[in-house]
Design a binder for these strands. Structure first.
Length: 558
RNA sequence: GCGCCAGUAGCUCAGCUGGACAGAGCAACGGCCUUCUAAGCCGUGGGUCGAGGGUUCGAGUCCUUCCUGGCGCGCCA
């Protein structure tokens, strides 16, 4: 709807220019928005105010000229007015809103998708938790966000790959292996002193137990070094298996699990470092190899190869990201914990050094999750090895509530996760609120079917009975859905979909309580059925986009 | 000390790449189930948008200074 009006406006502007009514042939991007105040029409533009300076005319005068050319925009508008300092307000005809319902019905599950990112490949890398323990609640937020961002991008026409980067090289997993090995020896009657920095969680003992059952005879004769290596491999495999299981239970699947170790095994770290050297982006100092990240805004240059030889974590991360772009992605999105924000400048500097736009890498920072129970924070001590796992929360509040809550806020602001609220089955719980709206409409459809009322085929709707303000407002909301998805994709902000869902559900519930869909008047009933069906389709599309279910009926538990 | 992010109603937060009188949910209070699911709806009260200055026809939104909170500043990963 907005796009059609935009199109008409642009033509009017160009025609004004051609006829010499306007001096400038280049126009600023047309901004059309929905005024907060209904008295200001359905859509409004500030273009006259923006053009006024260049044209050296009063804004209202510019508006008059443009409007003279626009007319009623091919029947879209029932009224156009100039208001305030020079805003142009458009009042759209009912018919133009009715067209939205046609479109929703015609497009069905694809309503809301667009070709915005057509032909572009994006990779979204998320979770990427070290395989040294189970996923905790913070990983869950990253998982929900990354998955939703990927989905939103896909809906906007991008070709999307979901990737999990496995940190299976380096000290952390080595420490995991050592921890398992020590617990295994303990299991076999040895008295050992467990290191201060070892992994202390009970799950280490469980893994040691599994190791003992399956590989005791293999492990027993090994010397320390190969034994620890064996434990590392075994532990990583076990934990990755659990992580994958947890994620699947959470409704998330990755297209690619990418191993850090494989970077080394394939010589990619060396290869990519050689490229950096070749381009003169590195230098040696104090026996170490440095990357000149300060050339592109970083605070200090960063070490790639330590003086004693081995590459830093940064080196493998650089190689990893270079390799991502080697794979041909136009855009790479990383989802990180907010505590890693300090690493963003150096990664972008690396890209800039290679002559790529730093914007080709977008890093989403995920802020902390504070779990609340009975209004009190649930304390988590990572040191003691005791933390709330994602699995526990999903088991307690359910997958939908969990995902919804994670997506309710923009990712870079802290999130209070109220466990009691997430479980509550009432209108206070926004998850059920939205899902209930969907289920309610399904229920209406079932009743309609029993009454013998059928939804007419798309294009054959008689929607003229829909003329209540609330009905028009609902259609406007439906019209806004595709823009909402595009905005969420452009800004990588899936929470916009959540807010949209709440708004649409709210508008529907309110309408439902005030007006009956199924009435004595068959023509009216049928039109309203078309309306609520459109709402159902959009609610369903948006819910599924976020990885949430769209229930056809609500089932009370307990 | 430097850097990043935040500071909007009692609480938790939106505010769409500056726009027309600042929004939602929760909490509080008062109503609504002979009618398509009350997991719902309606109504009421509540804010100097952290503070000062600046840019603009127009600032919660941009610039600057200060205050407060969180996080980060390894040849760790």
């Amino acid at each position: 709807m907005k796009k059609q009006l935009q199109h008409h406006l642009m033509q009017a502007l160009q025609e004004c220019y051609r006829q010499g009514l306007l001096h400038s042939g280049t126009f600023p991007p047309l901004v059309l928005e929905e005024p907060a105040n209904a008295g200001h029409g359905d859509l409004a533009t500030n273009l006259a105010l923006v053009l006024a300076r260049e044209e050296k005319k009063a804004p209202r005068q510019v508006a008059e000229i443009v409007l003279g050319m626009l007319g009623d925009a091919g029947g879209l508008c029932r009224q156009v007015e100039i208001a305030g300092p020079g805003f142009i307000n458009f009042f759209l005809s009912h018919r133009s809103w009715h067209l939205v319902l046609d479109e929703v019905a015609r497009q069905g599950e694809t309503y809301g998708t667009s070709a915005m990112g057509a032909g572009k490949r994006v990779q979204v890398e998320f979770v990427s938790a070290n395989p040294t323990g189970p996923l905790h609640i913070g990983h869950g937020r990253g998982a929900a966000t990354g998955d939703a961002v990927a989905a939103v991008l896909a809906a906007a026409g991008y070709e999307v790959q979901r990737e999990y980067y496995i940190n299976d090289a380096g000290n952390q997993v080595a420490l995991l292996g050592r921890s398992i090995w020590l617990r295994w020896r303990e299991l076999n009657g040895e008295r050992i002193e467990f290191p201060e920095d070892g992994y202390r969680g009970d799950y280490i003992r469980e893994i040691a137990g599994a190791l003992d059952r399956e590989h005791a005879s293999h492990l027993a004769p090994l010397a320390e070094e190969p034994a620890v290596a064996f434990c590392t491999d075994f532990g990583v495999r076990q934990l990755l298996g659990q992580i994958d299981e947890d994620l699947q239970k959470f409704g998330i699947r990755f297209d690619c699990w990418y191993s850090e170790r494989s970077l080394y095994d394939r010589g990619l770290v060396e290869k990519e470092l050689a490229k950096l050297r070749q381009r003169g982006l590195t230098y040696e100092k104090d026996g170490a190899l440095w990357l000149r990240t300060t050339d592109h805004g970083d605070d200090k240059d960063r070490v790639l190869l330590r003086a004693d030889g081995p590459p830093t974590y940064f080196a493998s991360d650089v190689a990893y990201h270079m390799e991502k772009f080697d794979r041909g992605f136009d855009l790479v999105v990383d989802v990180w914990g907010a505590d890693h924000h300090g690493y963003v400048p150096r990664m972008k500097a690396m890209l800039a050094g290679l002559g790529r736009s730093p914007d080709d890498l977008q890093v989403l920072l995920i802020q902390m999750v504070n779990l609340l129970r009975d209004g009190q924070p649930v304390t988590m001590g990572k040191r003691s090895g005791e933390f709330i796992t994602l699995r526990e929360v999903v088991d307690e509040v359910g997958r939908d509530a969990c995902r919804f809550f994670f997506l309710m806020r923009r990712s870079d602001s802290q999130l209070d996760f109220d466990l009691d609220l997430a479980k509550r089955q009432s209108n206070e719980n926004p998850v059920y609120y939205v899902q209930y709206a969907h289920a309610r409409i399904c229920s209406i459809s079932r009743n309609a079917a029993e009454l013998g009322l059928q939804l007419p085929a798309s294009g054959q709707f008689d929607l003229s009975p829909l003329e209540l303000d609330e009905e028009l407002a609902l259609m406007k909301l439906l019209a806004r859905y595709p823009e909402t998805v595009e905005g969420a994709a452009r800004l990588l902000e899936p929470h916009r979909i959540v807010f949209y869902l709440q708004e649409l559900a709210g508008a529907f519930h309110s309408y439902y309580n005030r007006h009956r869909v199924l009435t004595e008047d068959a023509r009216l009933s049928q039109a309203r059925l078309c309306l609520v069906n459109g709402i159902r389709v959009v609610l369903g599309n948006a819910l599924r986009l976020l990885g949430l279910s769209a229930p056809e009926q609500m089932q009370r538990e307990g």
